[in-house]
């Protein structure tokens, strides 16, 4: 038993330490290569705002930003983001003031149960960074990777329009 755990231990150390900056704070972690980023965030760092909806790369509930771009954190290994920056829903507000996209979801009632919301907000932040003035069609196309089972999407699209400065 001892020998076994020692070899497992060595195996993990062979991966080396991983340094990930999450919401501006650097974390040095020892990860097993198979650990998915979403579980690193939720279980190792306690950042449970990022949800797991499907675990099959379909629903987008686990969307976070990797160096500013939206990605599905259930489809990345923690070790792949060594040296990179992750932003989760917890990292959007500054000094207690909500991010404009968060504010818009709140104002436009872009949620019901809220389970999909962190993923939608991160996807929308990434969209508006790439395309600051998207058309309604562009917004719908850009949110194809996120599923909502409650709202019917209307208010979600409206919230993204509002965040983009469109009168809604």
């Amino acid at each position: 038993m001892l020998a076994l755990s020692f070899s497992l231990c060595r195996k993990e150390l062979a991966v080396g330490q991983v340094s990930i900056t999450v919401n501006g704070a650097e974390h040095i972690l020892e990860l097993e290569p198979r650990e998915l980023l979403v579980y690193v965030l939720r279980e190792r760092l306690g950042l449970t705002g990022t949800n797991v909806g499907c675990d099959t790369s379909s629903c987008g509930a686990c969307t976070v930003l990797l160096d500013g771009e939206s990605v599905k954190s259930c489809t990345l290994l923690g070790v792949q983001v060594d040296g990179h920056e992750i932003t989760t829903i917890e990292g959007l507000a500054t000094n207690g003031t909500m991010h404009p996209v968060q504010e818009a979801f709140h104002e436009q009632h872009g949620l019901q149960c809220g389970y999909c919301t962190p993923g939608f907000i991160m996807a929308a932040v990434s969209l508006l960074d790439e395309t600051p003035n998207p058309s309604e069609e562009e917004i719908r196309h850009a949110l194809e990777g996120n599923l909502c089972r409650c709202t019917g999407y209307q208010n979600i699209v409206r919230a993204v329009q509002a965040a983009a400065g469109v009168e809604v």
Partner: peptide, 9 residues
């Protein structure tokens, strides 16, 4: 292809 998240990776 897929969605923006998939295309980013």
């Amino acid at each position: 292809i897929g969605d923006p998240q998939v295309r980013h990776r």
